[in-house]
Amino acid sequence: MNLMLQQFPVVFQALNVGFLQTLKLFLVTGLGAIPLGLVIAFGSMSRFKPLSALTRLVIWVVRGTPLMIQLLIIYYFPGIELHNNWWGGGESGRFLASSIAFIFNYACYFSEIYRGGIQSIPKGQQEAGLVLGMTRGQIFYKVTLLQVIKRIVPPMSNEIITLVKDTALARIIALQEIIWAGQSFMRGSHGISGAIWPLFFTAVYYLLFNGVVTLALGQLEKRLDYFR
């Protein structure tokens, strides 16, 4: 117990650094996947059959395989198979590769939620807009969009909470996120070795982070409560 207290300041510092990387990956994935998901959703709903078929195939593959494998392929494939490791060796290369894998993977999940949301809006809404002389763009932005957002907030919240925890998968390509930071004290780091409690302690970060995310999304859900 005493030893833990002595180690705490050093561990805390290191875990914070790791958590920063976790947070960065989370934010970049969210900022990238939320709009990219919309593009993919429109692709999968396209009336141009080859495009929608291709998009759905890609979604099926991405959702049907583990994100961990996608990470490994994206990070190692260029170096090993193409003999050209365009990611570079360092932490920034690992972060870039992780971001791309996460954004693409999550965009595919989000796109299915968007598609469900868009298709769940009754056709009468669009027809009411049309007979009032609105353009299709006006109908989407002024009529449909907010109704879609209201419907997708709950399923999106689930995905976003999963994303918080999924960021840990980037450990597999040695991204120095919080799990990596916690584990380093087992091997030895900052003069501490053989300590497993820092790894367990990372769970507290995830819990707190998810608590904040859950509160924020709950708030958004409340803001949209004024209509049905």
Binding site: P122, G124, Q125, E127, A128, V131, V143, L146, Q147, K150, Y226, F227, R228
Partner: peptide, 14 residues
């Protein structure tokens, strides 16, 4: 030139 009132109203809920 035409206006249309639907059976199911189709008001914009928001």
């Amino acid at each position: 030139h035409f206006g249309l009132v639907f059976q199911s109203f189709n008001l914009f809920p928001q």
